[in-house]
């Protein structure tokens, strides 16, 4: 089970609203490579993972992604505080605003609601970890793209922190992949699925 800790993993203190930027950053909450998908993916994949060290990695990275949902939500929230209707219109925020006002709704930059259709839990350790490695890189590049539009340090600093965590998670899933491969037949990693086939 989980217990909530009443603090952000990294501080978020944004003073200047920017609804246009908020509309881009929300994708890292509910978009195709966002934090909600990341935690759902890793925490779902744990049950079929036969190697305890890798279950630990999936648990701890999946838990950290929950904390990142909170950070991304805090950024979007602070970027959309005290908006005037002119700011909402000029920032292209009106379509989001009519549906959600300034509430936090997990969706992509183009407005699609969060969907588990962009993630997988295959029940195959090598396939799952390959997906996880790719997911971390996709999230990293999304943060890189967001940083192209961040001229406010208050926003860029926590985004850079989140970007760095993607790189660390990629490394840790690399450890996980090595653990899985070391446990398999080195001549053919795909000879059987250690999560399903009896060996």
């Amino acid at each position: 089970m989980w217990i909530y800790e009443k603090k952000l993993q990294f501080p978020v203190n944004i003073k200047t609203p920017n609804p246009a930027l908020a509309k881009l950053i929300i994708t890292q909450l509910g978009g195709p490579d966002g934090e909600m998908g990341a935690s759902t993916r890793y925490l779902s994949q744990r049950y079929s993972m036969p190697y305890s060290e890798v279950v630990g990695i999936l648990t701890d990275v999946g838990t950290e992604e929950l904390a990142h949902q909170e950070m991304v939500s805090a950024i979007v929230h602070q970027l959309t505080r005290n908006l005037t209707t002119d700011q909402i219109l000029d920032g292209g925020f009106a379509p989001y605003f009519v549906d959600h006002t300034t509430g936090i709704y997990p969706s992509s930059a183009t407005g699609e609601p969060f969907t588990a259709a962009t993630l997988q839990s295959t029940g195959d350790p090598i396939a799952d970890l390959s997906e996880d490695l790719a997911a971390e890189q996709k999230a990293r590049l999304t943060y890189d793209n967001i940083l192209r539009f961040c001229d406010d340090r208050d926003v860029a600093d926590p985004i850079r922190f989140l970007r760095e965590r993607e790189i660390v998670h990629f490394q840790r899933f690399g450890d996980g992949m090595r653990i899985v491969q070391d446990a398999l037949d080195y001549k053919n990693f795909y000879a059987y699925n250690p999560a399903f086939d009896k060996k």
Partner: peptide, 20 residues
């Protein structure tokens, strides 16, 4: 119960069983 509770000289956090 959490990894902050590990007190051994070994990382017992990843000992089995997991709760499920």
């Amino acid at each position: 119960a959490t990894h902050r509770d590990v007190k051994c000289d070994r990382w017992t956090w990843v000992d089995e069983p997991w709760p499920w």
